[in-house]
Amino acid sequence: MVLTYLILTGSLEAIAIVLALSPGNLSIAFPAHRSQDSDIKSDILIWQSPPNPAPDTASTGLGEGIYLYGQSSNPDEIKQEYFVFEMRQSKVVGAFYLPRSAFYCFYGTSDRTQLNLTVVDTYDGSRSPYSVNLEQYYPISTISENDRRILGICKESHKQQVWEK
């Protein structure tokens, strides 16, 4: 996630405080050429959260089966993204979800550590391309009944786009 902060105070003290609070995750973008009329108020600070240090378990590729991955290594944590999917012959169908929230079905293909997907909006049915690097998520071995229920809905809805091609 990238957050952009505009320093409104214009003081170097504000920059020093932000740097102290977030060392290593901050870069400062100053204009290449500054006119005499500009001041530090126009400078932009960009904060980047470090990526999840997920283990490299996907590098060997995935066999056929049902998989669950998440932003957390623990299932069903509130405000964490998860996705459950079934893999068959490098084709996938599944769903992205947040616990106790809506879910979005997807289908597509896999090539070792990457899922190349079409995500289907639950509300309006629109479709969008999306890629997932599995190395950025945690594999979770426990697949709940709710995960299987969500997966079943998506498999039924999109079996023609995936399995019957």
Rank of each mutant, 00 (worst) to 15 (best):
D76A: 07
E64Y: 06
S59W: 09
E77F: 00
S73R: 08
Q80R: 15
V84R: 00
S59D: 13
D56R: 14
D76R: 06
N74S: 06
Q80I: 05
S72Q: 08
G65Q: 09
N74T: 10
P50Q: 07
P75F: 03
G61T: 14
P75K: 00
Q71E: 15
V84Q: 01
G65I: 11
W47H: 10
N74E: 12
E77K: 09
T60A: 12
P75D: 04
K79I: 10
K79L: 14
P50T: 05
Y67W: 06
N74V: 09
L68R: 03
T60Q: 14
L62P: 02
S49T: 12
D76K: 06
D76Q: 07
S72P: 06
S73K: 09
Q80V: 09
S59P: 03
Y67S: 02
Q48D: 04
T57V: 14
S49F: 03
A54T: 05
S72W: 05
F85P: 02
I78G: 00
S49L: 08
D76T: 02
F85H: 08
G65C: 09
F83P: 02
I66T: 15
A58T: 11
D76M: 05
P55W: 07
T57G: 07
N52E: 09
G63E: 14
L62K: 10
L68H: 01
A54D: 05
A58N: 09
K79G: 04
E64A: 14
P55A: 08
D76H: 05
P55L: 11
Y67G: 02
E86A: 13
P75I: 06
E81H: 08
G70V: 03
G70I: 01
V84A: 02
L68I: 05
G61V: 12
S72V: 07
E81T: 14
S72G: 07
Q71A: 12
Q71M: 13
P50D: 03
N52C: 00
I78F: 10
Y82C: 07
D76V: 00
G63W: 08
S73N: 09
K79F: 14
D56L: 13
E86Q: 15
P51L: 10
S49P: 06
E64P: 06
E81A: 12
V84K: 00
E86L: 10
P50F: 05
E81Y: 05
P51V: 07
E86M: 13
T60I: 10
D76W: 03
Q48E: 10
Q80H: 15
